[in-house]
Each structure stands twice: as structure tokens, then as C-alpha cells.
């Protein structure tokens, strides 16, 4: 009895999770010029409207470049940091690890405000650079958390063997360490890329009418009008997120809620 009740609540909860996403994708296909669900008639014309609007295209390019650059910088910074944290005991190790993970729990509104204020002081406010440094800070923890668990003690033995056999630190890194952590870099990098691409709270402080990201543009637009073009942009981001999650699942397996797995 209790079992059926729980299953019922769970299935209702799953429906609740899927409903808004399904509605957006459905509404983006409507032939009407206003938003309606279920859609009336089916068309892809709103996606066409989107790709012919230069402001959307430029926001799309900004978002993508920003996410790519932030992810690349985050990887370059996070990999040496995780090596230091995993391989060496040094004073303040715990504080360093807490500091590097802290953006995960920080209110993004506060960091965004801080970067606007600080950016005005050093002359980079409302520029791509100001957006980039903020995004690097918030996405770096994702790479760190994906790479760290792969630098386990067994892996360390291999590195020591390589060094004993006369390979230099650089050779050891590229031939022994990197192949082991490649999976973590890819999955952490994907999470970092998505988190950057979907951010509103941090970006909103440093964007302008001409330098805009897709989520911020949508946020400003939706407060005044809702129409099928917004549904079309949203649909693209939902489908992209779903694809990335499925790739991650195939890559590292997201079967995290199976029983008998001891952490």
C-alpha cells in the first residue's frame, strides 16, 4: 500500500519535472504568433526567425565563446590545482581546497555585483573580460571535482615508476597522468560549459545592450513580452542540455542511485 502511494507520488513528481520543458518545446512549434500549448499546427518558422535576427545570433556567439573560453581557462587552472591537492601534503591544504570549491555555494548575485564594482575600479566593467573572469571562477569547481577523484593512490604508483625510470615531470604528466584524468577533464569540462552557458545571475551585471548572452537577453525580453521566438530559444537550450547529459551518461554512467554502491 505504502509502496504504491510512494510510486504514485514519485511518478507525479517526474511528470512535474518534465511538464514545463515539454510545454516549451511544444509551444515553440506553434503556427500562431502568440504562445499557446498545445501548439496549433506545427512549424519550425520560429527557429528561422531566430537565426535571421542578428541580435540573437550575436548573443548566441557571445554565450558560446564565453562558455568555451571560461571552460578552457578553468581546465588549465584546475588540473595543476588538483595535482597539488591530490599529491602533496602542505600547510593550508584544506583551506585551499575549500577556497577553490567555494564558488559552488556562493550566491551568484553577490559575485556578479562584486565583479561589477571591482571591474569599474580597474576599468574592465561591462566587458567580455569581466564576464570571462567571473565565469572561470564559478565553473572551475566542476572541473576540480571531476578530476580529483581520478588522482587516486594506484595512479600515483604509476607516476612514481615513470619518474624512477628517468622520465621528467613534463613527460610523466603528458604520458602517464593526462591519459588517466582525461575522462574527468571531459566530464568536468562539459559541466563547466553548461553552467557557464546557462548563467543569468552573474552575467546580468556585466552585460550591455550590445554585449549580451542568450540567457540574459531572454531574461530581459521575457519580463516584457512572451512569444514563440523565446520558446524556440528555450527549446534549443533544453535539447542541447539533454544531449550533453546523455553524452555524460554514456561517458561516465549516471547510474548514481543504484543500491549497494558504497561511497
Amino acid at each position: 500500500m505504502a509502496r504504491h502511494l510512494i510510486s504514485l507520488v514519485a511518478l507525479a513528481a517526474l511528470a512535474y519535472l518534465v511538464l514545463p520543458l515539454a510545454v516549451i518545446i511544444g509551444a515553440s512549434l506553434t503556427q500562431t504568433s502568440y504562445l499557446v500549448f498545445p501548439p496549433e499546427g506545427l512549424t519550425l518558422k520560429w527557429f528561422g526567425v531566430l537565426f535571421n535576427d542578428p541580435s540573437y545570433v550575436s548573443a548566441f556567439v557571445t554565450s558560446t565563446l564565453l562558455a568555451l573560453a571560461a571552460t578552457a581557462v578553468a581546465i588549465v587552472l584546475a588540473v595543476p590545482a588538483s595535482l597539488a591537492l591530490a599529491r602533496y601534503a602542505f600547510p593550508g591544504r584544506k583551506s585551499v581546497s575549500a577556497l577553490l570549491a567555494s564558488p559552488l555555494v556562493l550566491p551568484y548575485v553577490v559575485l556578479g555585483a562584486a565583479l561589477l564594482q571591482y571591474g569599474s575600479a580597474i576599468g574592465i566593467a561591462r566587458s567580455f573580460e569581466a564576464l570571462l573572469v567571473g565565469h572561470v571562477i564559478i565553473v572551475m569547481p566542476f572541473v576540480l571535482r571531476s578530476v580529483l577523484p581520478l588522482l587516486n593512490p594506484e595512479q600515483r604508483t604509476l607516476e612514481e615508476a615513470s619518474l624512477d625510470l628517468g622520465a621528467g615531470p613534463a613527460t610523466t604528466f603528458f604520458l602517464v597522468v593526462l591519459p588517466q584524468i582525461r575522462g574527468g577533464i571531459i566530464s568536468g569540462g562539459l559541466l563547466a560549459f553548461i553552467s557557464s552557458w546557462i548563467n543569468v545571475e552573474l552575467s546580468i551585471f556585466n552585460t550591455t545592450a550590445t554585449l549580451n548572452t542568450i540567457p540574459v537577453k531572454m531574461f530581459n525580453y521575457v519580463q516584457y513580452t512572451v512569444d514563440p521566438t523565446i520558446a524556440a530559444v528555450s527549446a534549443i537550450t533544453i535539447v542541447a542540455a539533454a544531449l550533453v547529459i546523455i553524452i555524460l551518461d554514456l561517458l561516465i554512467g549516471l547510474d548514481m542511485l543504484s543500491e549497494g554502491r558504497r561511497s
Binding site: P20, I24, I198, P215, M218, V222, S234, I238
Partner: peptide, 8 residues
Amino acid sequence: SNIVRSFG
């Protein structure tokens, strides 16, 4: 994005 989900 939060914006997409809230828009839904």
C-alpha cells in the same frame, strides 16, 4: 537555465 525553467 533558470530563465528557461521559469519561463515554462
